[in-house]
């Protein structure tokens, strides 16, 4: 059994609009038999935090194009993307790319 873990989620660049315009969320992921990874986190966010129009955030089992995911201030591509195993106190940021000028 993996113990529950507390992580810090942040949304920015407009992605926060899908989460009641709240940028920062402290969440606790319940204990489960396997460790939490990013793939499961996306499923959890979809089920627990996203009320409307989930397709604006997730597509298939990953985030939709135009959203950059950062784990502890690094591009998630450097951390293993969907396979990254979350640790207690991790900081995960979902940032929508801006195009205005």
């Amino acid at each position: 059994m993996a113990a529950p873990i507390a992580i810090h989620l942040e949304f920015g660049g407009g992605a926060e609009l899908l989460f009641g315009s709240v940028k920062e969320h402290h969440v606790t992921l319940p204990n489960q038999s396997e460790p939490w990874d990013m793939k499961q986190l996306l499923v959890w966010i979809r089920g627990n935090m996203l009320k409307e129009r989930p397709e604006l955030f997730v597509q298939g089992d990953t985030v939709r194009p135009g959203i950059l995911v950062l784990i502890n201030d690094a591009d998630w591509e450097l951390m293993g993307e969907l396979e990254y195993e979350l640790q207690d106190k991790d900081n995960v940021v979902f940032i929508s790319t801006l195009h205005g000028g």
Partner: peptide, 12 residues
């Protein structure tokens, strides 16, 4: 970084 463009309705 962005191999696929975002869906047009998500661009503000």
């Amino acid at each position: 970084l962005y191999p696929k463009p975002p869906p047009p309705e998500m661009v503000t």
